[in-house]
C-alpha cells in the first residue's frame, strides 16, 4: 500500500515562502510526475514527502497515517537521487544490501533479495565492483536496486536521468516504466523534461512557483490545460499565444494555438495569418517553422518532414478553429 496525501502543506526557508499551500492526493500504485520550471519547488516538495525537510505547516499522510513529523528512516519510502548518492566505499552488493542491513534483515534474506534485484536490473556481473568503476547508467541502476530491495511504500525519484546521455535516458525511461508496471508501487518522479512527464506518468502535477497549476492525466493536461501556464508548459514545441484584437475576435483576453494545430499553405487562404519563414528546423520526421506573422509576432508551426521551406518564404497560417484555447485576463482557461 502506498497512498500519499498532502494537506495544506506549506514550506518557507526563513522568510522566503517556497511552497505557499499545496494539497494533493496520490493514489496507491500511481505513477505521478512533478514537472515545472527550474526553482519552482519540485525537489523541495519531494524532500518534504521524504522527510528530509520539515513542513512549515500542513499534514503529510502516508497510507492514511500522519507522518508529518516522522524521520525519513521511519517513513518507509525509498529515494533515488539525481547524483545517485551511492556509497563510494561499498561494493554494488553492499550498496544494495545497505537498507536491508539497516532493517536488520537476516543474511539469507539479504542475499536473496540482492540477487533478485541485481537480476532484475542486469547488475549481476557487477556486484563486486565499487560505484567508481561503473558507468552512469549502471550507477543509476544500483541506486534503483537499493531502492527496490526495501519494498518501500513508494519510490521518490528526483530527476534521476538528468545526468545521462540522451540515448541512455530513453532506455532508462522505459526500464523505470516497466519496473512500475511490474512492482505496481506508488512512484513520484520529479523532472523538468516534459517528454518524460508525458510518457511515464499516470498523472502529472504541474508546479509553478510552489503552486499546483494542474493535476491530471497527461492527455488531460494536453487537451484541457487549466490555464495559460500549463498550456505553455505542456507540449513541445510550445503553444503559440496571441492577444489583442485577434484574441478579442474569439471573446478571449488571449488565445493559444499549438504548433501542430495549424493549416499551412504557400497560397493565400481566406482569413489566414500571413507570415514569413524565419528559421526552418528540419528534423526529418517533422519540420518546425518559425514564422514571423505580421502584427502577431513569432509563431512556431509543426509540419511534416517532407515539406521544405527556406528563409524568407511567404506562408499563410490557418489555426484549427476547434483547437483554439481561450484564456481570460488572469490566464484561466475559458
Amino acid at each position: 500500500m502506498g497512498s500519499i496525501s498532502l494537506q495544506h502543506v506549506k514550506k518557507s526557508f526563513g522568510e522566503v515562502q517556497i511552497i505557499p499551500d499545496i494539497s494533493l492526493d496520490i493514489k496507491d500504485g500511481e505513477f505521478v510526475v512533478f514537472v515545472g520550471p527550474s526553482g519552482c519547488g519540485k525537489s523541495t516538495l519531494l524532500r518534504l514527502i521524504a522527510g528530509l525537510e520539515d513542513t512549515t505547516s500542513g499534514t503529510i499522510l502516508l497510507d492514511g497515517q500522519d507522518m508529518t513529523k516522522a524521520p525519513p528512516a521511519r517513513r518507509g519510502l525509498a529515494m533515488v537521487f539525481q547524483s545517485y548518492a551511492l556509497y563510494p566505499h561499498m561494493t554494488v552488493r553492499d550498496n544494495i544490501a545497505f537498507p536491508l542491513k539497516m532493517a536488520k534483515a537476516p543474511k539469507e534474506v539479504i542475499d536473496q533479495k540482492v540477487e533478485y534485484a541485481a537480476r532484475t536490473l542486469n547488475l549481476s556481473s557487477y556486484l563486486d565492483r565499487r560505484p567508481r568503476a561503473l558507468s552512469g547508467g549502471q550507477r543509476q541502476r544500483v541506486a534503483i536496486g537499493r531502492a527496490i530491495v526495501r519494498e518501500p511504500k513508494a519510490f521518490l525519484f528526483d530527476e534521476p536521468l538528468s545526468n545521462l546521455d540522451a540515448a541512455l535516458r530513453v532506455n532508462m525511461r522505459l526500464e523505470i516504466t516497466e519496473l512500475h508496471q511490474q512492482l505496481k508501487t506508488t512512484m513520484i518522479y520529479v523532472t523538468h523534461d516534459q517528454v518524460e512527464a508525458m510518457t511515464m506518468a499516470d498523472r502529472i502535477v504541474v508546479l509553478n512557483a510552489g503552486n499546483v497549476e494542474q493535476f491530471g492525466s497527461p492527455l488531460d493536461l494536453y487537451k484541457k490545460p487549466a490555464n495559460r501556464f500549463v498550456a505553455g508548459f505542456i507540449g513541445s514545441p510550445r503553444m503559440n499565444f496571441v492577444d489583442g484584437p485577434e484574441a478579442a475576435k474569439h471573446n478571449a483576453h488571449s488565445i493559444g494555438v499549438r504548433p501542430e494545430h495549424f493549416k499551412l499553405s504557400r497560397d493565400p487562404l481566406a482569413n489566414a495569418w500571413k507570415g514569413k519563414v524565419g528559421v526552418a528546423e528540419q528534423l526529418g520526421s517533422d519540420t518546425f517553422l518559425h514564422v514571423h506573422v505580421e502584427g502577431l509576432g513569432l509563431m512556431t508551426i509543426r509540419t511534416d518532414g517532407d515539406q521544405t521551406f527556406s528563409h524568407g518564404d511567404d506562408v499563410y497560417l490557418m489555426p484549427d478553429p476547434t483547437r483554439i484555447y481561450r484564456f481570460d485576463a488572469a490566464g484561466i482557461a475559458l
Partner: peptide, 8 residues
C-alpha cells in the same frame, strides 16, 4: 536545510 529533528 534540514529537519527540526536533525537540528536537535
Amino acid at each position: 536545510m534540514a529537519t527540526a529533528q536533525t537540528r536537535t
